[in-house]
Amino acid sequence: MKLLQLSSADLRAHLHGPGIWLRTGPFSLRVQSRVESVAEGLTELYGQFEVRSASESFADFHIALNPPSHLRRWFRPQVNFSFDGVEPFKPLPLDQAYPMLEWGLNWCISSHAHHYLIIHAAVVEKNGLAAILPAPPGSGKSTLTAGLVLSGWRLLSDELTLIDRKTGLIHALPRPVSLKNESIPLIRAFSPSVFINRASHDTAKGTVAHMRPPKESVRRQHEAARPGWVIFPKWTAGATTVMEPRSKAQTFMFLAQNAFNYSHLGAEGFRVGTQLIEQAACYDFQYSRLEEAIAAFDRLAAASPTEKVES
């Protein structure tokens, strides 16, 4: 059953009680919350995702978002994130409850799913090949990712690249795309029909809103992809669109430094990471106009043979 098939009353009854079981990519989670913006965010952004009764299904991550029990629930109300009953973060303002769910889930996956090498990077797919987009904040990574997935590329993830240690394939985790500050109106203008939820202001990352993942990306969330490219995007005002090859060894070093669990995996992380780089073409990519950037990615995909991957 899909989440959108649940009535509003049923969803809230589950969330307030035992929680709702939800599948996203290879992971299942149980979410429990009395916060209205969490129910609202799940309804708006996770409608296409599979749900079950939480009491009948095993979940990888048990998550709860609720106001603290003391007086702060009345004075500048806050929200706590808990994972398996432990609260790993300080509470945030109640207005940030939905982003906190997404950030907390990223943390759960990146600090526990060690059967993957997990790189802090967006990843999109076309013709069976994945383009990994690692980049520091402010490089336009999320904007480019949103633009690509609204233009025919499949969303694998906007934040976590999951590399299967056994197969080297990249697994999909097509959750809502996090947009920040200027990229929110930019993506609304780029695709007026796109759904972006209510923004949370004054977060640690500025103003944050989430874009609903494309239906097709969610439908194909169990389909893995082969590594095709590692592309470092950099948005620069007024710049011409340029894609240039970059050093594979230096690309590996960057990915190792930006992997959540490279150190934890040791020699295995080195093996998986170098195998990935061996298969992928590596580029630096500078752009200022989203349409031109997407055209450059499309040319890259068109020049590569289609890959079929058994999932």
Partner: peptide, 21 residues
Amino acid sequence: QIKIFGSEAVVFDTDSGDTHY
């Protein structure tokens, strides 16, 4: 453990856990 990419390489030191370019 050494992996060569063209004229460059990366090295993993299994004793220290460090990676070098």
